[in-house]
Computed example of a mutant assay.
Amino acid sequence: MLDWTGLPPKPMARILRFQHALALIRCPSRVSLAEIAQAAGYADQSHMTAEFRDIAGLTPSGTRPPPPLRQSPIPTRRCLAPGASFGLASCKEKT
């Protein structure tokens, strides 16, 4: 492996395991970090967290994209005229 990558096997395996865990973390399925650590081959979640801090400078949860925004079930209101008073008479349900 050293001939192909310039890295010894242990550091190369570490990078590949990190990349695999990162890909799983970024999946939209929102699997727990403990399950991701196990699937990627780490001994436990704390081992994965330590390796993420060492390689990326972030925790695994810091690399996870935010959950999608959900639309509020509360209807929004919009003003009928710019500068109008914001009383109930000046607003109507948004359609």
Rank of each mutant, 00 (worst) to 15 (best):
P73I: 08
D3A: 07
D3Q: 07
E35M: 09
K92I: 12
A39M: 14
I25P: 00
M48T: 01
T63S: 12
G41I: 09
C79N: 09
F86S: 12
S29V: 07
T95L: 09
K10G: 05
A37T: 00
S72Q: 11
A56D: 13
I15G: 00
G87N: 11
R77D: 02
R14T: 10
A21R: 01
L2G: 02
P82F: 08
A50M: 12
I74P: 00
G41N: 12
G41F: 11
S29Q: 10
L33E: 08
M1E: 12
T59F: 01
P67N: 04
A81V: 12
R26E: 13
R77H: 10
M12V: 05
T59A: 04
S90A: 15
L22S: 03
Y42S: 04
F52C: 13
Y42V: 06
C27E: 15
P65L: 07
I36D: 00
L16A: 11
R77E: 08
P82K: 10
P75W: 05
T5R: 03
I25N: 00
V31C: 05
W4M: 05
P68F: 03
Q19H: 13
D54L: 14
T76K: 09
R64T: 04
M48E: 00
R26F: 02
K94S: 12
P60N: 02
M12R: 15
F52E: 02
T63I: 07
A43C: 09
I15P: 00
L24D: 01
L69P: 13
T49W: 04
R17W: 01
E35W: 04
L88K: 14
P82H: 11
R17S: 05
P66S: 08
A39V: 04
A81P: 00
F86D: 10
A23V: 05
E93S: 13
Q38D: 14
